[in-house]
Amino acid sequence: MPRFALKIEYDGAPFAGWQAQADRPSVQGAVEAALARLDPGFAAGARIAAAGRTDAGVHATGQVAHADLVRDWDPFRLREALNWHLKPAPVAVLAAARVAGDFHARFSATERRYLFRLLVRRAPATHDRGLVWQVLNPLDLAAMRAGAAHLVGRHDFTTFRSSICQAQSPVKTLDQVDIEEIALPHGREYRFTLRARSFLHNQVRSIVGTLERVGAGAWPPERVAKVLAARDRAACGPVCPPQGLYLTGVGYPQDPFSPEG
């Protein structure tokens, strides 16, 4: 059966997360329902696999999944057909590519990239409502960057791990935590970019929630090192809400969507 990789974008607001659930809408369920209209294997109950199982309300601009199909589609036509059948769900297939049979969207991945958008302004968000986490009071960019520096590298991230996380080990290598400040007409947006081979459940939201406390002046930057070393979930800052979080990309030894891939 030919295997295809799919690059997928979605607004997570109407979904209970990526993973298919029997009684709640999911992104996986939406894509599989579209595939069922095109392929007899999915009409019979075949499943897709994704690089990351995003939580309820979390968005994606670069999720990757793979599907084994009965028909050997032209990738362009597969993308167009899927997007037709995905309407009106806020899900789009950005690219489709034929891949080798040993390609796996999750296990072949060498890195995941996330973006978190934090809006600071007094007036409520309108156009970005549901797409950012909004706070009202100013934040100190330099302090947040100083706090974030303590997290880069290989650490035991138990403090920043959900109590229901199923990962075998809390030890992860965080390759990048960058924070960009964008001036807006009536406020500021802070964009947190995080990159690692893999993340623990709620790790990104826990890190951003902790750094927001630093930016607000409630915590000094050096406290981030102390809470990391504590290896205690109770030491963590608040877990920020999901609507500001985006899975923006997945890295592979060879990009399946490039001409060379």
Score class of each variant (00 low, 15 high):
residue 179 I to D: 08
residue 176 Q to F: 00
residue 173 T to E: 15
residue 15 F to S: 04
residue 212 E to M: 15
residue 238 P to C: 08
residue 258 S to W: 05
residue 239 V to D: 01
residue 251 G to L: 11
residue 47 R to Y: 00
residue 219 W to I: 04
residue 205 R to Q: 09
residue 61 T to E: 14
residue 109 A to H: 12
residue 202 N to G: 00
residue 247 L to K: 04
residue 106 R to P: 06
residue 160 F to M: 09
residue 18 W to P: 03
residue 18 W to V: 03
residue 68 D to P: 00
residue 260 E to I: 13
residue 97 A to G: 09
residue 196 A to V: 10
residue 79 R to L: 08
residue 226 K to V: 11
residue 95 A to V: 05
residue 143 A to R: 15
residue 244 G to K: 09
residue 168 Q to M: 06
residue 222 E to Q: 14
residue 22 A to T: 14
residue 217 G to H: 09
residue 199 F to D: 05
residue 259 P to K: 07
residue 13 A to S: 15
residue 62 G to S: 12
residue 31 V to I: 14
residue 79 R to N: 02
residue 164 I to K: 14
residue 50 A to M: 02
residue 77 R to N: 13
residue 104 H to T: 10
residue 41 G to W: 03
residue 231 R to T: 02
residue 120 V to F: 02
residue 180 E to P: 00
residue 195 R to E: 02
residue 197 R to Q: 15
residue 56 A to P: 03
residue 68 D to T: 11
residue 206 S to C: 14
residue 108 S to H: 08
residue 169 S to M: 02
residue 58 V to P: 05
residue 13 A to Y: 01
residue 125 A to E: 10
residue 79 R to Q: 15
residue 116 F to Q: 05
residue 124 P to Y: 07
residue 20 A to M: 13
residue 182 I to S: 12
residue 173 T to F: 01
residue 109 A to K: 13
residue 203 Q to N: 07
residue 158 T to C: 08
residue 194 L to A: 06
residue 76 F to D: 14
residue 205 R to K: 11
residue 9 E to P: 00
residue 139 L to P: 06
residue 82 L to Y: 01
residue 4 F to P: 07
residue 172 K to D: 03
residue 234 A to T: 12
residue 108 S to Q: 09
residue 227 V to S: 03
residue 200 L to E: 11
residue 254 Q to V: 15
residue 173 T to V: 11
residue 240 C to R: 03
residue 21 Q to C: 13
residue 182 I to V: 15
residue 79 R to P: 01
residue 34 A to N: 10
residue 99 V to P: 08
residue 198 S to Q: 11
residue 136 L to G: 15
residue 154 R to Y: 00
residue 14 P to N: 09
residue 213 R to W: 07
residue 161 R to H: 04
residue 256 P to W: 06
residue 185 P to H: 12
residue 2 P to Q: 07
residue 75 P to K: 10
residue 102 D to K: 05
residue 76 F to Q: 14
residue 155 H to Q: 14
residue 154 R to G: 12
residue 236 C to K: 11
residue 99 V to N: 09
residue 68 D to R: 11
residue 163 S to A: 15
residue 12 G to D: 03
residue 226 K to F: 00
residue 206 S to W: 01
